[in-house]
Design a protein around this nucleic acid. Structure first.
Lengths: 244, 244
DNA sequence: CGAGCTTTTGAAGAACGTCAAGAGTTGTGG
DNA sequence: CCACAACTCTTGACGTTCTTCAAAAGCTCG
């Protein structure tokens, strides 16, 4: 993963949503990046810390984890290549969650001074960065609706539909086949379930024929069927090009 | 509620988080507002609609509601005076949720052209508006953690602590006393519970002495006790002044 | 006073969690 | 290349939390 790749990755995060002017692209490329590798299980950002840079995912999977006093953990979001995991840290500074590497990972850190510079020279790019955080909010709302009102089976189906869509956009899913490099305990922490019930829910979804899932390989034989079963409507992901 | 009040309300939304320059204030006051009244139960913004203005709450309570195919409803957020309910609509345009008036309500609509104008002339005010949406995201993460990992009783306690803090900042709570103008069905839709279990959970919290709650009047006799019981840590609300 | 809404209660059942243990898999060191 | 340890997945049994259904009681407002 070279610096050139990193800038390309960043540019490709915007282009499904709006066109970038040559000036926008040049401005993005002018930002110094710090590329760092993390091993599986390592903590990239600590909960309750103060931050002065934000990180863009290059490879691997990360999650935002909230640790409760009870010792329980909730993973509030999953992130893959192209996701600006903690862009909200630019405005918030205070991190209400940790960021943990769920697989070996490469990320590019951008200093907040650089982002601030963008806000001072490019209103358009500023709105696009802002957009990334509001899309994140839309995903979070969908997660809230799932946790609050969908039973475990639909909740899992909905997550698989979302991951399929997001992975496809960055070339990591093809014909509804993709890799989920997560253990069931992590999936349980995402869906708010116990590990045992997570296991039984996966088995039930498999048995129903809605997904084929062996090891980390997932295949969704009939996407629209799973989407309908899970109440999945991709519009909240905002993969639509318009003037922003 | 006059126009002057509306601008004051808007300004007071920022000041707990950062100071505004005279230019910032003048710019805010230059935005045309459209003040509208809604009756209890009315829909202010429809789910799946396209929007070209965003609304700031003046009086009353609103909620963001997601309606699922199953007929179930999840209220993903509550909003009170000073909240910019759908500021994310400025960047997203597509509304993945509805906004519903939970009480009689006055809101001020700001056209997106005006917000765009701000992004073109004031990087600082742009960052502050952006901040409001990222704080919203932090609240959503906390909601996800509650729904995923807290049992009903703690979930309710946590909500009450959050409301106490937020209402106090806008002068609607004093000495941990405030009004919750919501019926138990609405609370159930916020906490992801059935109405019956919502009722029993409220009773249990009352019985435990953690809250006094009769009709819509809530009193938290020992806030830190309830906060500890519920795992509430107000830092995610970002009521802290710093350079943004 | 009555209609409609909201709160409350009881009873039964479904969904999910916990505990415990066995089976399968992966990785590591000798 | 094998043996062992550690991790992960799976299963069974049982308990708890929460839901559903149904109905009664209380409240509000014309």
């Amino acid at each position: 993963m070279t610096y050139t790749d990193a800038y390309e990755r960043l540019i490709k995060t915007f282009t499904p949503r709006d066109d970038l002017s040559p000036d926008d692209v040049a401005l993005l490329r002018s930002m110094p990046l710090r590329i760092v590798t993390f091993g599986k299980g390592e903590e990239i950002i600590a909960q309750d810390s103060e931050v002065s840079e934000s990180c863009l995912m290059m490879t691997g999977w990360t999650g935002r984890a909230v640790y409760l006093e009870s010792g329980k953990r909730q993973i509030t979001a999953l992130h893959i290549a192209g996701d600006f995991v903690d862009l909200h840290g630019f405005t918030l500074k205070y991190m209400d969650h940790s960021v943990v590497a769920l697989t070996a990972t490469q990320v590019a850190f951008v200093r907040h001074e650089e982002l601030k510079r963008i806000t001072q020279v490019s209103p358009h790019l500023t709105r696009l960065l802002w957009l990334l955080t509001t899309i994140d909010g839309a995903v979070q709302r969908t997660t809230i609706a799932s946790l609050g009102r969908r039973p475990a089976l639909e909740r899992l189906g909905h997550l698989l539909c979302e991951l399929d869509c997001r992975l496809a956009v960055v070339g990591l899913a093809d014909e509804h086949r993709f890799d989920i490099p997560l253990v069931q305990e992590e999936l349980a922490d995402i869906l708010g379930l116990s590990v045992v019930h997570m296991n039984r829910t996966i088995q039930e979804l498999r048995k129903g024929g809605l997904v084929a899932w062996q090891g980390s390989k997932v295949v969704i034989p009939d996407f629209s069927k799973l989407a309908q079963f899970s109440g999945f409507d991709p519009r909240y992901l905002n993969f639509i090009k318009r003037e922003r």
